[in-house]
């Protein structure tokens, strides 16, 4: 079974004057260990798809099955809990709590999970070292560059030991060199820990780094290319 199964997912936004079709009968399977980019022009439905896969939004029809569980079977509070334990999130910007230091930001999600202080601190520091910020643990986000902030967000996403990480345009606010090194980091984490990454982007350089590229257009899958096969150990 795949890690993520997307079956006939349609999303219609009907809060607006004219209902908008955000997604149109999407079918996708994503395996554990993938390093996959969702691409497409603005308005093609990337964010909508990631939100639905991440349990932040519900499809109008169709289903999302993660680790063999249909997300629609969860009650709202269970869904929060599911996100907390199974999904790591990285957003485009404003990921972090501004009044917390890098370490506290990473710790916070583990606090929500109920880990004790010693374990939290140890893991937070390990992760910040892994994302190359071992020397900035006590800095607040405002004292760090955009790229460093996104690295903290990645560290936080991993802190909860999720099944996969969803990143909606994680490099959109970064210059290309910084974007490149964030991609390096994510790719390394993918290889070293077999962590699944699904990220959206419309930056061609970032697209080139993905192992699989799913192209959306007007809410439908236009193209699905596998560039690098999953390593055998999966």
């Amino acid at each position: 079974m795949s890690l993520i199964q997307i079956n006939e997912v349609t999303k219609i936004y009907d809060g607006t004057a004219v209902p908008v079709k955000g997604l149109n009968e999407i079918n996708l399977e994503i395996e554990s260990g993938e390093f996959t980019a969702i691409v497409g022009p603005s308005g093609s439905g990337k964010t909508t798809l990631l939100n639905i896969v991440g349990g932040l939004d519900t499809p109008t029809s169709g289903s999302v099955v993660i680790d063999n569980v249909d997300l629609s079977t969860y009650k709202p509070d269970e869904l929060v809990n599911f996100r907390l334990h199974h999904i790591g999130f990285v957003f485009q910007a404003y990921n972090l709590i501004p009044v917390f230091t890098a370490k506290e930001n990473v710790e916070f999600i583990m606090l929500l999970q109920g880990l004790n202080k010693t374990d939290r601190e140890k893991r937070a520091i390990e992760l910040l070292e892994a994302v190359g910020l071992g020397d900035r643990v006590n800095n607040k986000p405002s004292e760090l560059s955009g790229g460093q902030q996104q690295r903290i967000a990645v560290a936080r996403a991993l802190a909860s030991k999720p099944s996969f990480v969803l990143a909606d345009e994680p490099t959109a606010n970064l210059d290309s060199a910084t974007a490149d090194s964030l991609l390096d980091l994510m790719e390394n984490l993918n290889e070293d820990f077999n962590m699944t990454f699904v990220f959206s982007t419309h930056d061609q350089r970032v697209i080139d780094r993905a192992h699989r590229v799913i192209t959306l257009h007007d809410g439908a899958v236009e193209k699905d290319e596998l560039k690098i096969r999953l390593s055998k150990n999966n």
Binding site: R83, F89, F91, N95, I97, P98, I109, S160
Partner: peptide, 14 residues
């Protein structure tokens, strides 16, 4: 608003 959105997204209960 955004911050609360992120906090609730990553798993903070209402």
């Amino acid at each position: 608003v955004r911050e609360f959105g992120v906090l609730m997204a990553i798993g903070m209960k209402r």
